[in-house]
Amino acid sequence: MFLPKYPDNPTPPPAHTHTPNDPMPARRSLPPVAINRNTVVALVVGGVVLTALLAAVAVTAISVAIAAVVLRSMLRDHRR
């Protein structure tokens, strides 16, 4: 019959196995952004334009609302 072969002097497994830590991955930095005078001017002009457009939309909405109220009152008076 076949008997398994055992080592003569078995050593027990170590209680704590040391696994080396992987070094922390390097943080990817954002690409450098050159902030110069032209960039600031472009942002300010863009902000002014967007603000003007928003104001124009608000004024238009208020004008349409006022016109609707006036027309409604005129039609109500016409029906009487």
Rank of each mutant, 00 (worst) to 15 (best):
M1Y: 06
F2M: 09
P4D: 04
K5N: 12
Y6A: 12
D8A: 10
N9H: 13
N9W: 13
N9V: 15
T11N: 07
T11D: 03
P12R: 11
P13G: 02
H18Q: 11
T19Y: 11
T19P: 00
P20K: 12
N21T: 06
D22Y: 15
D22M: 12
P23Y: 04
M24F: 08
P25M: 07
P25A: 08
P25G: 00
R27G: 03
R28T: 11
R28E: 14
S29Y: 15
L30Y: 09
P31S: 14
A34H: 10
I35G: 01
N36Q: 06
N36L: 10
R37C: 08
V40E: 01
V41H: 04
V41T: 13
V41W: 08
L43P: 00
V44Q: 07
V44R: 09
V45M: 12
V49R: 07
A52R: 09
A55N: 02
A55M: 10
A55D: 03
A56V: 13
A58S: 08
A58M: 13
A58Q: 04
A58H: 02
I62E: 02
V64A: 06
A65Y: 11
A65W: 04
A67G: 07
A67N: 06
A68T: 15
V70K: 01
V70R: 01
V70G: 00
L71E: 06
R72F: 15
S73Y: 15
S73P: 00
S73M: 06
S73V: 06
S73C: 04
M74Q: 14
R76P: 00
H78T: 03
H78K: 10
R80I: 04
